[in-house]
Design a binder for these strands. Structure first.
Lengths: 227, 227
DNA sequence: GGAAGGAATAAACATACTATTCGTTGGGGT
DNA sequence: ACCCCAACGAATAGTATGTTTATTCCTTCC
């Protein structure tokens, strides 16, 4: 039906419809109704529903049907949910939240990275900082930027920090696509990447933390939450 | 098979097997093999697999089967994954990470709460602080503690912060069940809950942040990451 | 030796059956 | 006459099995 598979089509369609608010919380659907509406088989719909239940978007009850849950029970950290929110009226709120989350996590993660990185990781981080400075195109800049932040988070040796890489990548992508061209890059931003790599390499956690905070704040275009 | 439904049994069994490392990364299964081993139907196995794929534990490919993915691609923020890691040899690492995550985001979230809470929420937060002080049993203390932290996060008006409530609840639960009896409660801990509620009520973000940081640090039993 | 085609295999998809739950209705008791 | 409770029935998620299609590997032919 959708080219990239019936399952993906149904999952994305349902998820986007719920997150966008087109189907309000409390609304009751049924597998059968979705089958009739989309034309795909029960199996596929059920599989998609199971994923949405796991994401907190739906609850399933016998004789009750599929109840759309309020946004308070959605798994806001789920990559799909983030994407759906970015394609919905909640887009602006989601972007604000992404920045706040970055501001909270990245400085401590950088501190942890400075304490726990391997020498090879420190070297690779410096390379990526150089690549950011030398980037000759928006795409190259974006790729190096995402690589840098992903590696920084991975060096923290904390799987939960590392997973927030998806959040950072989404924020960077939005920034590079949105109304704020990031290329040619701001010189101070470039410099900060180098300073962070150096602080991590020199095992200076508080410096890594402070530089990272400055970098994220500069990219946030808004007053930071008081510390 | 499992009493609480075949689906839950299969999902939990597979997830725990992968996260515990009993089934190593790179191992290739197949739906049919799981059907034969567990005795449940293909539908159920497929639905469970779809959830595990969404959680980053498996990848499914035609003619290839189900490939177990390395832990770097697991969704470490997923509630199920956290639970499975707590029931595995990675338990100690998971607890350390939970504390680091709390330390990173709870102070900023408290600051946001101080700026954005409603009056009703501030009042309710005070009530919960009082309930913590007055708790007459370990269960009552735990319930009030979880309620307090959940509400604090919800007041931040950031869905991603609010969702980390599961992380906090898990950390508190471990603490109350584990070797560190939390009841009768430490007087300073009780006092800090009151001070946080007051700071949020008085719209003092930096004070709310600092008190929250102190509280989480006191509960961490380890040197905090440098700021 | 390389490319193209075919066969085997396993996920993707569709359909059929079962068990459970909740609403409704009818009867009996207050 | 009204209310409560229990039994029955319909509706829907849960479970099971059959069918199709895409992918990959291996073989063969150029």
């Amino acid at each position: 039906m959708t080219g990239r598979g019936a399952f993906d089509g149904v999952l994305d369609g349902l998820g986007a419809a719920i997150v966008s608010g087109r189907v309000p919380a409390g609304h009751v659907e049924s597998v059968e109704a979705i089958v009739a509406r989309t034309g795909v088989s029960r199996s596929i719909v059920r599989e998609a529903v199971r994923v949405l239940v796991a994401a907190g978007l739906l609850s399933a009850g016998r004789r009750v049907g599929l109840r759309v849950l309020p946004d308070t029970s959605w798994d806001a950290l789920n990559a799909d949910v983030i994407r759906w929110r970015l394609d919905a009226p909640s887009r602006a709120a989601q972007l604000t939240e992404l920045i706040e989350v970055r501001l909270a996590f990245e400085p401590p993660a950088a501190a942890a990275a400075a304490l726990r990185r391997t020498d090879a990781e420190a070297a690779r981080l410096s390379e990526l900082a150089d690549a950011i400075a030398a980037a000759a195109s928006p795409d190259a800049f974006f790729a190096a930027d995402v690589g840098f932040h992903s590696l920084l988070l991975a060096c923290s040796r904390n799987a939960m920090f590392a997973r927030l890489q998806t959040v950072v990548a989404e924020a960077l992508r939005e920034r590079s696509l949105g109304g704020h061209p990031r290329y040619p890059a701001d010189p101070r931003d470039v410099e900060l990447h180098g300073l962070i790599a150096a602080a991590v390499g020199a095992e200076r956690p508080q410096e890594a933390s402070a530089r990272t905070r400055e970098l994220v704040e500069r990219n946030s275009n808004r007053p930071a939450l008081p510390r």
